[in-house]
Design a protein around this nucleic acid. Structure first.
Length: 829
RNA sequence: GCGAGAGUGGCGGAAUGGCAGACGCGCCAGACUUAGGAUCUGGUGGGUAACCCCCGUGAGGGUUCAAAUCCCUCCUCUCGCACCA
């Protein structure tokens, strides 16, 4: 215990000094190339957890490394500070959301500072600050003015127990996050952003994002869900109504045996009105609508339907088919109507089987015959078209195209691209968010708040018990206003914006965090953007990352920023686990960062987190593992302390490279090889774990050398060089202890302002190499040879070895493979 | 169901076609010591008396002089999407 290095003193000493000197402050410009290193800003939930700690430790190593490599590094931090937990906490504990949020921010900021993270704190932003949300509102207005923000009636998540609307992210497995009540749908007027206008570009640009993990790109691709098909117009026989359907399988048009509509489809109302089964059908529709989201959309849920009594006419062959309604058809996608082809679609197949609808085969696998009556599942693959007048015998993939063209010629259908992506619902009936800057005037209608009147301030003295309406409706002073156009009495929009709106542009605000006449300056934002490295959890793979891309594209199109894509490289870090499971209060397996910092200090905590696993993978927390990292830093501490006096005495003297002993050369070689290894590991692939392990190996070698050879004439000089290299390489990982020891060996400046070391190619050269000798692929011997020995000679030497010859025996050599400087494989007959 | 990723000692992990298990944890032994839960040194995949040798990277097959690594089939786990016509 008494031998532990005094991490508490050291860490607070340097943290204070860095803060006092504004050590990590940056400005745009200068000779050095810019580098923007960004970690996802946190929601101020109360205290940092291990996931945060991992995220920021990774980012800080990148930022510090790039700084030492000569970049002008922007490394900011802020707070995603609007959101529901603040309101929930307020309801529970009676603390106002603003107070709760700001005190959490204070606590988390101080935790970050005690981690030694190299942020430019002058650039801190908080999305709940009026100086920030003023510009969130301003950006809303820009979208509104360009037709990208609009209001429409939509079905939203509703919790019957809490009597409030829920955000999508508040619905967990179809139930309310807070009270576990199954969520239902309600129709309400809602604000949307028209992200669907950008669907194709969001999809196309993914190809350019070569610095993103494929996993994330695939998730976004699936989320956008582009499909190419045909919208075909059927006609309702009884009423003459047009009934368009969307399909990607127009090649199966002759296999349609029924039509299914979503229960909410407008045609349903017309065809059932006055029919004998009206009441029965209505009660079915009501039942489906009452169904919770989970029950409605689960794959396991049974497909249920009902015949409406009406019929549709297939425009391709004039055939009449029954129109059904069913719970498995979604009103929101395509046209809300689906043509039923049971032989070639599994869902239709199951539905047809259940309700005795005919199954007509129109595509067969090559060389096989299918019979609808005996099929056990739908045949959904391409094949040979049959029972399709004019197309029989044709390959169905060819038929798809021809039928689409024919339908267009005949005017019964048109090619169409559909997306699964929906417009982004941004309004929330909640208090703790940025107010939507809109005013409703009886005379002038919907009027945007004039830009010079921003921000629309969120009142701080409001009752926010959830009732289903925004709490802001209860604040007279907030609601009652005058119309900016006619000056008459008017009312403010009382809903607030989804917090994802706030987080869709914060990375731009960091470039000009205190700008008062614009969200950011074009020149400055263009200097820093794009973000060179973005680091965060994979849970944001779709929503945040898609919304941020959308915003950046819109702002690009409006001429506000130069870039179209905000994040060049993306690193998605894995989770922190304990006993194989995600840390959570309910499991009782939470490790508190504050406790770890107190017991071991920031350097140890950072080092362990980075050493235990590569960043993309999950990390298994180990109480013994962190002891090991702490032990390592103690080892470094003792080593450098012991040497520091003699090293200081050597300052100013050059190393005589020519006069070194074998041992001295070996340590020098290892030190320089470690530079190369650590540089490659950080630069190329973020493998911090192997970078750290090679520094550990260097320290081990230094200990060995110290006992053996530090007294030799040049031994100390070699040791001094190794020591400097080791500290420099360790500096991004363990910034405090390296700073302290750097000073201790007589350096006057900060280690964090030093240049990253370059390795000496002469030093890493080896005279001799160990060659593995294999016979028939099995290792049989090892020999040491001069490193410059050529292949032919190596082959000869290997063949002469007794060990090798004994394994070759009498069989004779058939072939010899030589891998230069590594291995010889002798293949026998 | 579809998509993605993973599976290597007692544990975290290393090796992306060329010596499997670097580094760390744990364990064992030795040194120092009044003491060691400090520190230093050495050992540590399995079989085996053995520094001979044999076996070994989820299972099985294949390609190759050579496979943890590439290909095929299967199993298990994790994550994402989940009736999108």
């Amino acid at each position: 215990m008494e031998d532990r290095y005094p991490f508490k003193d050291i860490e607070s000493k340097w943290q204070e000094r860095w803060a006092r000197e504004g050590f990590y402050r940056v400005e745009p410009g200068g000779d050095r190339p810019k580098y923007y290193c960004l970690e996802m800003f946190p929601y101020p939930s109360g205290a940092l957890h291990m996931g945060h700690m991992r995220n920021y430790a990774i980012g800080d190593v990148v930022a510090r490394f790039k700084r030492m490599r000569g970049y002008n590094v922007l490394h900011p931090m802020g707070w995603d500070a609007f959101g529901l937990p603040a309101e929930n906490a307020a309801i529970k504990h009676g603390i106002p959301p603003a107070k709760w949020t700001w005190s959490n921010i204070d606590r988390m900021r101080s935790q970050m500072k005690s981690l030694g993270l190299s942020y430019d704190w002058d650039r801190e932003v908080a999305s709940c600050h009026p100086d920030y949300y003023k510009w969130t509102q301003w950006l809303f207005l820009q979208l509104y003015k360009n037709g990208l923000a609009y209001k429409k009636k939509a079905a939203v998540n509703w919790c019957p127990s809490c009597a409030t609307v829920l955000a999508n992210e508040q619905v967990v497995d179809g139930a309310c996050e807070r009270c576990d009540t199954p969520v239902t749908k309600r129709d309400l007027e809602q604000w949307f952003f028209k992200i669907t206008d950008y669907a194709d570009r969001l999809l196309e640009n993914l190809k350019k994002l070569t610095g993103w993990p494929d996993k994330v790109k695939i998730m976004q691709e699936n989320w956008i869900g582009r499909s190419e098909g045909v919208e075909i117009t059927f006609t309702v026989k009884e009423t003459g109504d047009k009934l368009p359907v969307y399909t990607t399988r127009q090649d199966t048009i002759f296999g349609v045996t029924y039509m299914v509509l979503a229960p909410e489809h407008p045609v349903v109302e017309k065809v059932i009105a006055g029919s004998p089964r009206e009441a029965e059908i209505r009660s079915f529709i009501e039942e489906v609508r009452r169904q919770s989201e989970i029950a409605r959309t689960s794959t396991e849920a049974e497909k249920r339907g009902m015949f409406t009594g009406a019929h549709a006419i297939n425009p391709m062959n004039g055939e009449e088919i029954p129109i059904w309604i069913a719970n498995y058809v979604l009103m929101e996608y395509g046209t809300g109507a689906v043509m039923g082809v049971p032989a070639h679609d599994q869902r239709d197949f199951e539905f047809a089987k259940k309700y005795g609808l005919p199954i007509r085969v129109v595509i067969e696998p090559p060389g096989e015959h299918l019979d609808g009556a005996s099929m056990e599942s739908a045949y959904a693959d391409p094949g040979v078209m049959v029972n399709s007048p004019g197309f029989d015998g044709l390959d169905s993939t060819v038929g798809r195209d021809r039928i689409a063209s024919l339908m267009e010629e005949r005017g019964i259908g048109r090619r169409k691209v559909n997306y699964r992506l929906r417009d982004w619902l941004i309004s929330r009936q909640r208090y703790w968010g940025a107010p939507i800057p809109i005013i409703y005037c009886k005379k002038c209608g919907t009027v945007p708040v004039p830009e010079e009147d921003l921000p629309v301030l969120l009142p701080l003295d409001v009752e926010f018990e959830p009732t289903g309406q925004s709490p802001l409706t209860k604040s007279r002073e907030f609601v009652e206003t005058t119309c900016p156009v006619c000056g008459g009495p008017a009312e403010r929009e009382t809903e607030t914006m989804d917090t994802f709106v706030c987080s869709s542009w914060y990375f731009l605000r960091y470039t000009c965090p205190r700008c008062t006449d614009a969200p950011f300056k074009r020149e400055t934002v263009d200097y820093w953007m794009p973000v060179d490295q973005y680091i965060g959890g994979v849970e944001h793979a779709i929503l945040h990352l898609m919304y941020a891309r959308f915003f950046t594209m819109v702002l690009h199109d409006l001429g506000l920023v130069g870039v179209e894509e905000p994040f060049t490289n993306l690193l998605t870090q894995g989770m922190v686990l304990k006993e194989g499971a995600k840390m959570s209060k309910s499991k009782g397996n939470v490790v508190d960062p504050e406790y770890i910092l107190d017991k071991y200090g920031a350097d140890t905590a950072r080092l362990f987190i980075l050493f235990a696993s590569p960043p993309e993978r999950d990390l298994e927390w180990s109480d013994q593992g962190i002891e090991g990292s702490h032990r390592f830093l103690n080892r470094v501490w003792r080593l450098v302390r012991e040497l520091s006096d003699s090293i200081r005495g050597l300052n100013g003297q050059a190393l005589d490279k020519a006069a070194l002993t074998k041992d001295e050369k070996a340590l020098r070689r290892q030190a320089h090889a470690t530079i190369k290894k650590v540089t490659d590991d950080i630069e190329g692939r973020f493998n911090f774990n192997t970078a750290i392990s090679s520094i550990m190996e260097l320290v081990n070698a230094m200990y060995q050398f110290k006992d053996r050879a530090a007294d030799e004439p040049h031994g100390l000089a070699v040791m001094k060089e190794a020591c400097e290299i080791m500290l420099l390489l360790l500096a991004p990982f363990a910034p405090h202890i390296t700073e302290e020891l750097w000073q201790l060996i007589g350096k006057t400046g900060s280690i964090h302002k030093e240049a990253w070391p370059e390795f000496d190619p002469e030093a890493v050269k080896v005279d001799e190499v160990t060659i593995v000798i294999q016979v028939n692929g099995k290792v049989r011997d090892r020999i040491t040879v001069p490193s410059e020995m050529d292949d032919e000679e190596l082959r000869e030497v290997a063949l002469k070895q007794d060990k090798a010859r004994s394994f070759i025996g009498a069989r004779g050599v058939r072939e010899v493979f030589v891998v230069p400087r590594k291995l010889v494989n002798i293949v026998t007959n």
